[in-house]
Design a protein around this nucleic acid. Sequence first.
DNA 1: GACACGTGGCC
DNA 2: TGGCCAAGTGT
Length: 354
Amino acid sequence: MWVSEIMLQQTRVETVIPYFEAWLRRFPTIGKLAEAEEQEVLRLWQGLGYYSRARNLHRAAREVMRRYDGEIPGDPTTLETLPGIGPYTSGAVASIAFQVPVPAVDGNARRVLSRLTDDPDPGWPTLRRWASALIDPEAPGDFNQALMELGSKICSPRRPKCGECPLSDFCAARRAGTQSERPAPRRRRSVPRLVEAVAVLLCEARPSRSGSDDVDSTTPTRRVLLRRRPSTGLLGGMWEFPGGPVAAGEDPLEVARRVGRSLVSQSDGSRLERHSDCAAVDLGPVQRLRVVDHAFTHRRLQYVPFLFRLSAQGPAPEGDSELMWMDPYEAAGVPIPVAQLKVLTQVFGPTGPP
DNA sequence: GACACGTGGCC
DNA sequence: TGGCCAAGTGT
């Protein structure tokens, strides 16, 4: 219930279902979730977006174990102290799971209330007041879910089905004919378009030892260098190919070379010597990969990836867990954002489950 | 209160 | 293609 509410924030039901099922298989209890590593939690969230929800849910699970003896609190005020739980989710959990008569006003409920009253932009205090006045104290969870369901199925954002709506006789917007203009749309700012050069460093190392008939010894190990993003902010904690912003008029390839060079030479010189092939980053064969366009909510990003084939693996900076050489199997086990997955599949082919 | 924060579907 | 939308929260 809690997990589903978090997953459903800003996300469609059909998208959530497979994630929800996989999640409960892996984390059947709050205790299991609390024990897990954040990396695994993010891996199960991979593709769902808004990854802070996963990090917060994980932290909240640990807090529930530590402070509430593993029992989810039923009081909305207490719920809101947990990371990732705000006014909506606290109301939803408290009313649906604990029968506490509090409102749970999401975007759907807001739209219904906005139309019922023909108020183009009701504030959240107003919405809570209206919902509180209407709520059935005997079945607050059912009421809240019904209100949201009505907004989702009948009182839809576009082309509301007023003919099927049980409340159409009481609807001020319907009377005024303004239902499709309620609530008033928020004006959006234009999203900046950015270009990012991506350096895919690929190492196909054949085993140096010969004379063995072991299959593994004839199969080259293919590894790519991945970097973990800082644990907060955009795509926090997720792994991606190293890259850098491309300024207007700048050549993406030059940026990628610069990034690649800095990575293979960032350890001490002796290691570089032993891996002299790595110095060939700026000489060696460069292969253009397919450009990946990706639209976030607040920016549009164009990833321009280049594949650098190294014949030896560059120094894996020890103690630097932000940077790691990974084979296809390892890469399938760490959380990677969707756009970077599109780059990865160009190198490794499809890997692992979504 | 404004802004950051992902992704996929729709038209 | 590109803009808009969808079950919010944290800072």
